[in-house]
Design a protein around this nucleic acid. Sequence first.
RNA 1: UCCGGCGUAGCUCAAUUGGCAGAGCGGGUGGCUGUUAACCACUAGGUUGGAGGUUCGAGUCCUCCCGCCGGAGCCA
Length: 436
Amino acid sequence: MALATVEGRIYVNEAGRHVAEDVWVFGWLYHRRDKGKLQFLLVRDGTGIIQCVVSKADVDEATWQQAAELTQESSVKVYGTVRQDPRAPGGYELLLKRLEVVQIAKDYPITPKEHGVDFLMDHRHLWLRSSRQHAILRVRHEIIRAIRDFFDERGFVLLDAPIFTPAACEGTTTLFETDYFGQKVYLTQSGQLYMEAGAMAFGKVYCFGPAFRAERSKTRRHLIEFWMVEPEVAYFDLDDDMRLAEELIEYLVQRVLERKRQELEVLERDLAPLEKIRAPFPRISYDEAARILEEAGTGFRFGDDFGGTDETVLSERFDRPVIVHRYPAAVKAFYMKNDPEQPDRALCMDILAPEGYGEIVGGGQREDDLEILERKIEAHNLPRKAFEWYLDLRRYGTVPHAGFGLGIERTVAWICGLSHVRETIPFPRMLYRLEP
RNA sequence: UCCGGCGUAGCUCAAUUGGCAGAGCGGGUGGCUGUUAACCACUAGGUUGGAGGUUCGAGUCCUCCCGCCGGAGCCA
């Protein structure tokens, strides 16, 4: 279905269906080369890049001159005959007949040569036009679409959680505080507590939205604002939860392999490790993980949560994501249910992505007993009043339930094989970087 | 916040022990009928992040400040 509203206008990715036809392409000049009485204009329109051949013999002098004056990222409308030609990048080219210049762009800052991270981040609004960023963000789009498909196919209801919250979901991390008509409120760091309410109402729910963490983290795996999908299911235990999470991850990887090969190629992603991502994933307990780390000598001490290097060491032992379960309850959030067989352990799990990409999933079974939960809220020094509604969920028809959160940017970084999450979101928010 | 590194043309970088600030890309001008980050010739372009100091002389050494990058902690 063509969206073009002008007679004869096509998008670049439709060129193959219009061979030998005269068409318009509206876009921007990506690059220009000339060779005597020939000019090659690479025109991008968002769906792809097509080479336009301008032959001095075929166009009038004014058109030839206009084409010669085009600069990088000038906006243009080109009209010509679509041809199949093996010499053209992408296989198709446009033999130019007419040219309309919308605007000549002066001194576009991003050239086809190499640039530093700082410069590119300062020009993120323009950097989005380059083909590598296109590939990454198209993979992101596909992953988001696949997430929705996965849950929708399984009968989950999308239930959006609020962004403004009166209290912390997890007391441990720092929150962004703001003013809500004179009342202190915070930007959400997770929609989970609301999803628990949703699960008691709809059985199977998920939310998909941004999360904000005011942590002064400066690593390749951190953003201040990131996106997360959080399913929550009633009558689910930890094992059910692990199965759902690994099924989702397998689904996402396979979907990208199936539909975004070209993008992965642009990114020079090694596909072999991705092909191996099939459920079930290995499961190890915190104790087993701790033994591995103590042998490896990472400096890890039993009882701690894992650090970045610990996660890398663990994930490198497996060719698939690895599920680590039953952490010490002391290092985990108040809402986690304790393991009845080992009361000092929480019924929780983290999934570590392969190739050192770190934790992409965190979740587990929630505490469903009113009295235990009340004691935990107290023990964690949380404001009881803000959690009354949450405690209601345990007063009125409480059931075992579980869920998890999957971080979009880390998942995209892993699947694309990137060295930093900053390129996986259109406009990253990082420590000391708020613009553009 | 802590530890480490870096800051030279619009961009990416070079500059010997402290001794004439340079190259490629991009821009400009000219040439070439199949280029693939084309190529060739010519050309313009600098308060070496900022302030102070040492020295006959500082891009280079010292002090402070600013910015960025990487890592740690914390986390998805």
